[in-house]
Simulated assay, not measured.
Amino acid sequence: MSISLAVPASPATSPSFAAQMETAVAQDPPETDYPLGVADKVRIIVFDEPSLSGEFTVNANGALSLPLIGDVRAVGQTATEVATVIRRHLMDGYVLQPRVSIDILTFRPFYILGEVNKPGEYPYSSGLTIDGAVATAQGYTYRADKRKVFIKHAGAAQSVKARIAPDLKVRPGDTIRVGERYL
């Protein structure tokens, strides 16, 4: 993926600042590059074919079960990539010139554990931050360490310790653990 960032030249803007901004933007990919995962719900529209269109959920096997063509692998692929695969399958003797679009309706949930008032599973919303996730879980307990959290991204083997910041993003499928503070 190539991301370019135009930063106007001024005395206050240094090359290192521009590099930091570009890195920050590159680490937070746009949702068009969002890789689908189990429990994501999508709307597939095959134009002029209402019987092939509808709302589908990525199943436990990582596939979308579609009419006529059966299971289409979706986990780890973007909506655009899945639409291309569906289009190819439909061209294989089912629809003459299929036009396919996919919208992501709901993302897989995130989980928050530890020193929050209501730990559990919550629906993900676009642009969710750690502060928003904690607010969704009705805030910190009185024992919570409000300086750091442990985040395990979907598919990762281990949790990563992260310093809490207003712009710390949560991804769909993340498990967040708020630890206990020590005096």
Rank of each mutant, 00 (worst) to 15 (best):
S53W: 01
E180H: 06
E81D: 10
I176L: 09
V134F: 00
A157S: 14
F107L: 10
T80L: 12
K161R: 15
L52W: 06
F107P: 06
I3V: 15
Y182G: 09
V25I: 11
E49N: 08
G93S: 10
K148C: 00
Y34M: 14
V160Y: 04
V25K: 11
M1A: 14
D48V: 07
F150Y: 15
R163I: 04
H89A: 03
L64A: 05
M1Y: 09
R163T: 03
V100E: 12
S51Y: 06
A157L: 02
D145W: 00
V116S: 06
R99S: 06
V42K: 02
F110D: 04
A74Q: 08
F107W: 13
Y124E: 00
D28F: 03
I3R: 13
G76F: 01
D103C: 05
V58N: 11
Q20I: 00
I130M: 07
K161V: 15
Q20D: 13
N117C: 06
A83I: 03
L183Y: 14
R99K: 04
H153F: 07
L68D: 05
G76V: 13
A60Y: 06
D103E: 15
R99V: 03
A137N: 12
M91A: 07
M21E: 14
R177E: 10
F56D: 04
T136I: 01
A157H: 02
V42I: 06
L183T: 04
M21F: 13
E180V: 00
L68I: 03
K118V: 08
T136E: 12
T80Y: 13
E31K: 00
A26I: 04
G70T: 01
Y94D: 14
L128S: 11
A165N: 02
A133S: 10
D174S: 05
Y34S: 14
F47N: 11
F17D: 15
G76P: 11
A9S: 03
S10C: 08
P119M: 00
Q138Y: 08
D131P: 00
G120Q: 01
A6V: 12
A39N: 07
K41C: 09
K146E: 08
F47Q: 07
V178P: 02
S14M: 12
P29A: 10
E31Y: 04
S65M: 01
L36W: 04
D28R: 02
K146C: 09
R181P: 01
D48S: 14
V95F: 07
D71L: 03
I104C: 02
D174E: 15
L168R: 05
T106I: 09
R171V: 00
S159G: 13
P166H: 11
T23R: 15
T23Y: 12
R177S: 02
A12T: 13
V75P: 10
I86P: 07
I151D: 12
K118I: 05
L52Q: 02
A12Q: 13
M21D: 00
A6D: 15
